[in-house]
Design a protein around this nucleic acid. Structure first.
Length: 184
DNA sequence: TAGGCGATGACCT
DNA sequence: GGTCATCGCCTAC
């Protein structure tokens, strides 16, 4: 299970490219797959099947009928562990991101999982994309310097919200202080 | 096959 | 701080 956490932390500072917009990841949440009751993959269903596959694939799901959220499957195969990308800083394609997100402050372009997916133009059609190949959505190499990292409880989940599996770049303005789920 | 329910965000008070 | 939009997926008939 520690491996899940390590992979999540290692995503911070990396750049996620999506359809003309690139985002430096500043906030993530780890999900432990078959061992984690809060994970979509806790029960194996057609929707979560993608997470049981090889790592570095994209898992996108729709929430509340409106928002898309982007996850990176961190593998290994059959463990179904994944990392939810919660926030980032737009470092490329700023204009396009504004077009998609509307007239909002720069730091808010990709703040929150739904907003981040929208800024990158991610939809269900991107489900299963290989993030290491040179496709429309891909993940950049690890940063030269590892940023300072803080951790805390996960947001919005109704189960196992007390495990400190949310990680963010300390002091980064694109990370907001999210309130805990009222249902937790 | 029908009903219930979010790994959210925006807007209202 | 509280409410609500809105739809695909999961679970239970």
């Amino acid at each position: 299970m520690d491996e899940v956490v390590d992979r999540a932390r290692s995503l911070l500072g990396r750049v996620l490219h999506g359809h003309g917009v690139a985002v430096r990841i500043t906030e993530v949440e780890a999900y432990g797959g078959v061992l984690d009751p809060a994970s979509h993959a806790f029960t194996r269903t057609p929707r979560s099947e993608i997470m049981y596959g090889p790592p570095w694939r994209l898992y996108v799901y729709r929430s509340y009928g409106i928002h898309h959220c982007a996850n990176v499957v961190t593998g290994p195969t059959e463990t179904a562990s994944a990392v939810l990308v919660r926030a980032g800083e737009v470092v490329e394609g700023r204009e396009l991101a504004h077009e998609r997100r509307g007239d909002v402050a720069g730091v808010q372009l990709a703040r929150g999982p739904g907003n981040l997916a929208q800024a990158l133009g991610l939809t269900l059609t991107d489900l299963g994309t290989d993030l290491l190949s040179d496709s429309g959505v891909r993940l950049g190499p690890p940063p030269d310097a590892v940023p300072p990292i803080s951790s805390g409880p996960r947001v919005g989940v109704s189960k196992a919200a007390d495990v400190p599996w949310r990680f963010w770049v300390t002091g980064d303005p694109t990370v907001s202080a999210y309130r805990r789920s009222p249902r937790a």
